[in-house]
Design a protein around this nucleic acid. Sequence first.
DNA 1: CCTCGACAATCAGGATGCGCATACCTCTAC
DNA 2: GTAGAGGTATGCGCATCCTGATTGTCGAGG
Lengths: 225, 225
Amino acid sequence: MRILIVEDEPTLGQQLKSTLEQTGYAVDLSTDGEDGHFLGSTEDYDAVVLDLGLPEIDGLTVLGMWRKEGRNFPVLVLTARDSWSDKVAGLDAGADDYLAKPFQTEELIARLRALIRRASGNTSSELTAGYVRLDTRSGRVTLDGEPVKLTAQEYKLLSYLMHHKGKVVSRTELIEHIYDQDFDRDSNTIEVFVTRIRKKLGADVITTIRGLGYSLDDPADTPRA
Amino acid sequence: MRILIVEDEPTLGQQLKSTLEQTGYAVDLSTDGEDGHFLGSTEDYDAVVLDLGLPEIDGLTVLGMWRKEGRNFPVLVLTARDSWSDKVAGLDAGADDYLAKPFQTEELIARLRALIRRASGNTSSELTAGYVRLDTRSGRVTLDGEPVKLTAQEYKLLSYLMHHKGKVVSRTELIEHIYDQDFDRDSNTIEVFVTRIRKKLGADVITTIRGLGYSLDDPADTPRA
DNA sequence: CCTCGACAATCAGGATGCGCATACCTCTAC
DNA sequence: GTAGAGGTATGCGCATCCTGATTGTCGAGG
């Protein structure tokens, strides 16, 4: 999962970035509205953390522009001001959630998790597909009830696929959402991790669609032929 | 739009109900968890406002039960307690948003609006023509309900035709859209793939218009000749 | 009505390149 | 130093695509 943070205060921004990275997200950080808007318009994010009190361009304006451009990633708005009218304005401008400074980092993480989960149409923090079960909250994966040990990257890949269950996900899409901005796109890492995951969870969890990408299917969703 | 409010405090509940009704919603009000759970399980709501501090059954429990039952209406949680851990628990239990008491009614309305808007943003990505069904999201094709395995090129060709259902598509147009940039135009690949698709989906899905190109027609759209 | 030319459909063999697996290297953490 | 993880490099097998030849079909004109 790839996150964009737009936060003008460098210390807070950096702190957020590293916290989220430790949690397993790929994070891009932008410190002003213009740059942030550009990134959000050109790159593909799973969620955005947006500070309203930005220099030059107001956060609300940036948000408005994104929505006008058709960008529909979930946006969590940070606001220093505590007036509820600002919050309402934010929500009406297309924000999906907001958080008033100061806040607990745990809460930010929980809200991001909820946003991403919701954006993928899931209501529970548990994702399942066949015998595989993934708890986004605890970061645990079980196969047929038995806990399975996945490495960080394996988890990220599997998590992204499970959030987009049933969808064909291209290799580039995976790379874009698992790694941040600059990463060597000509590499076979994805294939390698797919292989490793298959070794741990069974060959049939991830389906290859030759020439298009990968797909994770829930047998329950596939009406028998 | 139909809303369910589960709130044990009668005054607040009634006040919310009338406010929301003035805004144009149809509102059901329940004053305890058990009844509220029953309503949510049996009736069909567009959104639910749920107080966490309920007698008898905890709001979190109710929410958990709903989610387990597969109910996926958006839920906005009300909490008197201000501890962030409760909020985190709520979000992880499947809440879509929360609001801490006391709150401004305007804010509640704005958030409900946002929730409903978001929930209705599910656009299906299915194209159909006769017995053929193509889901652009999952990249899957079914014929009369039966899944059909197409290769990448077959899929691209079919997809393009279905996106331009009823239109006559020339061979050059197909080549230009399926292959990138320069491709040997003197080649009969398109014909080959048309043949293959016809073999898998039936000869009548793609009509040949001699000298012009191909066309994919939906029998439903074609008044009988 | 038949013939002929042009266009379309089909078939099969061979090249391509995609995806898989495995081994190898680097880096970090302990 | 060791162990585990992430990433790179390489060879192989096979599904998939393309090519080119052949067969089939349509339609106009004699």
